[in-house]
Design a protein around this nucleic acid. Structure first.
Lengths: 215, 215
DNA sequence: AACTATTATAAACACTGTTCATTAAAATTA
DNA sequence: TAATTTTAATGAACAGTGTTTATAATAGTT
């Protein structure tokens, strides 16, 4: 008769509305300040209704985590046009960094927060999003190796080191730790106490290191 | 009369007792589960009393942050006995990694959590602890340079890259993200799906990279 | 002993995530 | 169409959180 379908559609709409409201509040006020009650108020439903569509807050956070990852993968799409493997690797790093600074809250959601991963763990699931992104890096590193870079290195370990470096650069910045380090900035004439300059600067250092790894 | 001194001493004792109780609860049950009420119960005082000695929870967290950093610096003391700069750098990395795994909660307190840094920011303070640790790394890197390593590199940027890599390695592990990445572990014969092996393994890769940077 | 300054606390405020019995609405059956 | 069943939504409560404040108890001084 079709009424069941319409109902089902309405149910899925509401589930998405919850997620959209959560995402907006999240990017607006951060995770800490985003309560179930606030989400409920935004979609004009009772807080208890949320629990008819999501088991708990972690399930919402995990859904946002997945959405956030899709956005990251999307940011990576720029590298498809680049033929040179090493240039592709560099572009991947730049895209990663840019994403972390443009969407610090999403970055936290997908790479820092424990809750979404705990949700994956509880459901004995696998982290497909992470695998997908890591595979992209791995393939690029392997392509670089065929181009003469990183000879003698095992690609997975190397990929992981590269990811770690980028992750470290991004997190140390967004967590606010660098802002209060005087040594790292003040003493360098080129930097002028500006933290924002330290990161692209360090990224260039990192690229130089990798560049020297060509046979 | 001395009574004023005794009182002052008692006051400082209580302030330390609060911190000790907080530290114990923190390492026992984690930050999330450590409430002011729980701390108060442990020292057998009323929750409101805590606020006579610490302005708010962030001030307690910041005090723990400073204690934690002292512990890290202590872990670094092993490098004093090593003459070779590059071996010293390697030992520094190893000590850093070991600290992160032995005290994951303290690591989170000093390098991941935003709250202690927010406290530093509010008081227009500087992050002396961070500066101290970074300087130690910087001096080691500079010594390496005088030994023929990292020629042509600006030491601060390079030091920051090294720190970022170590930080990335440690945080990706303790946050639980690696546990659910199948690609990174399963496919490597040497690793046998074991995440615990991925890190020392990746660390060795990183050391190899640095090793190649001689002359 | 009386007064004052310090220290401690009970109670409340405004929140949080989550559960559950109850009610309202919609769909199905008689 | 009327009665019944299934589904969806909610108000209220539970147990917790950080924090503030007026009140009470204690200690020190005159």
């Amino acid at each position: 008769m079709g009424t069941a379908e319409r109902k089902e559609r309405h149910k899925e709409d509401l589930k998405k509305d919850i997620l959209t409201a959560a995402k907006e509040l999240f990017t607006e006020k951060g995770f800490e300040a985003t309560s179930i009650r606030a989400i409920a108020e935004k979609i004009e439903y009772s807080p208890a209704t949320i629990y008819l569509y999501y088991k708990d807050k972690n399930e919402i956070v995990h859904a946002l985590h997945q959405d956030g990852f899709a956005l990251l993968i999307q940011h990576f799409s720029v590298i498809n046009t680049i033929a040179s493997p090493f240039e592709r690797l560099k572009a991947l790093g730049k895209a990663y960094m840019q994403f972390a600074f443009e969407h610090p809250d999403v970055y936290q959601l997908i790479f820092i927060m424990k809750e979404p991963m705990e949700h994956v763990a509880k459901h004995e699931d696998e982290w497909h999003e992470g695998d997908q992104a890591f595979t992209l890096l791995l393939k690029t590193v392997e392509a670089c190796q065929q181009d003469g870079y990183f000879k003698g290195f095992e690609p997975i370990g190397l990929s992981f080191v590269i990811w770690s470096t980028m992750h470290g650069l991004c997190t140390l910045r967004t967590s606010g730790h660098l802002e209060h380090m005087t040594v790292a900035c003040k003493d360098v004439a080129n930097l002028n106490k500006n933290v924002d300059e330290l990161l692209p600067y360090s990224y260039d250092s990192f690229v130089s290191i990798l560049e020297r790894m060509k046979a």
